[in-house]
Computed example of a mutant assay.
Amino acid sequence: MDSFKKIHLLSQELIPIINDLDDEPRQVILEHITNCEDCKILYDSTENFNKTMPMHDYSENVELKPLKKLVQFNNGLKLLLITVRALILFYIVYSSFKYNGAESVTSLLEYFKSGIFLFYIPASIFLLVFTFTFFNKKWIWISLVTDLVIILFLEKVLKLFL
């Protein structure tokens, strides 16, 4: 295969994307077009096609609306995570009062601390991993701070009310 034939084949492949090529290959193809009638016809038809295509202004930032069902599912998962935390805390507080009664505040708080340790900490670790997997960094930090506040300070808040 001679060099003209090679350039001819390559030119026919590259003419549709000639505007995307670097300068040197574009110049080789344009030089070939001046010598080859078939490639000139292909180039002219490609240019005519490009001119008839409507041009869009993509400079504006267009906000894409996310899928409605996906947003609802995402909000449902967030609500589920909040609900699970609230139910675990409700169970711990309810069982602290039910099984301990009103014997003493210190034993009530000890039972509450043990409930946090046995139930809430493992659940919060699982929920944090779940949050890390399915949500963005903002929700991870919100969940982490909320869990730390509950684990470290909720007992002190209960002490104020008892």
Score class of each variant (00 low, 15 high):
Met1Ile: 11
Met1Asp: 06
Asp2Phe: 09
Phe4Ala: 09
Phe4Gln: 08
Ile7Ser: 10
His8Thr: 10
Leu10Asn: 09
Leu14Val: 02
Leu14Gln: 04
Leu14Met: 10
Pro16Phe: 03
Asn19Glu: 10
Asp20Tyr: 11
Leu21Pro: 02
Asp22Ile: 00
Asp22Asn: 13
Asp23Tyr: 11
Asp23Pro: 00
Val28Trp: 06
Ile29Pro: 01
Ile33Trp: 02
Asn35Ile: 05
Cys36Ile: 04
Cys36Tyr: 05
Glu37Ala: 05
Cys39Asn: 04
Lys40Gly: 02
Ile41Tyr: 07
Tyr43Thr: 02
Asp44Val: 11
Asp44Trp: 00
Ser45Met: 11
Ser45Tyr: 06
Thr46His: 04
Thr46Asp: 06
Glu47Trp: 04
Glu47His: 09
Glu47Met: 15
Asn48His: 10
Phe49Ile: 01
Thr52Gly: 02
Pro54Arg: 10
Pro54Phe: 11
Met55Gln: 14
His56Arg: 12
His56Pro: 00
His56Thr: 09
Ser59Gly: 07
Glu60Ser: 11
Glu60His: 11
Glu60Thr: 09
Asn61Gly: 00
Val62Asp: 04
Val62Phe: 07
Leu64Ser: 09
Lys65Cys: 05
Lys69Met: 11
Lys69Phe: 09
Leu70Cys: 10
Leu70Glu: 14
Asn74Phe: 09
Asn75Val: 05
Gly76Ile: 00
Gly76Lys: 12
Gly76Arg: 08
Leu80Val: 07
Leu80Met: 13
Val84Gln: 08
Tyr91Leu: 14
Ile92Asn: 06
Phe97Trp: 08
Phe97Lys: 12
Tyr99Cys: 04
Ala102Trp: 06
Val105Glu: 12
Glu110Tyr: 04
Tyr111Cys: 12
Lys113Tyr: 03
Ser114Ile: 10
Gly115Glu: 09
Gly115Trp: 09
Gly115Met: 10
Phe117Asn: 15
Phe119Arg: 10
Tyr120Gly: 09
Ile125Ala: 07
Val129Arg: 05
Phe130Val: 13
Thr131Tyr: 02
Thr133Ile: 10
Phe134Arg: 06
Phe135Trp: 03
Asn136Glu: 14
Asn136Phe: 07
Lys138Asn: 07
Ile140Gly: 01
Trp141Asn: 15
Ser143Gln: 12
Ser143Thr: 10
Leu144Met: 11
Thr146His: 05
Thr146Arg: 06
Thr146Pro: 00
Leu148His: 01
Leu148Pro: 01
Leu148Tyr: 06
Val149Glu: 03
Val149Trp: 03
Ile151Asn: 02
Leu154Gln: 02
Lys156Ala: 09
Lys159Ala: 14
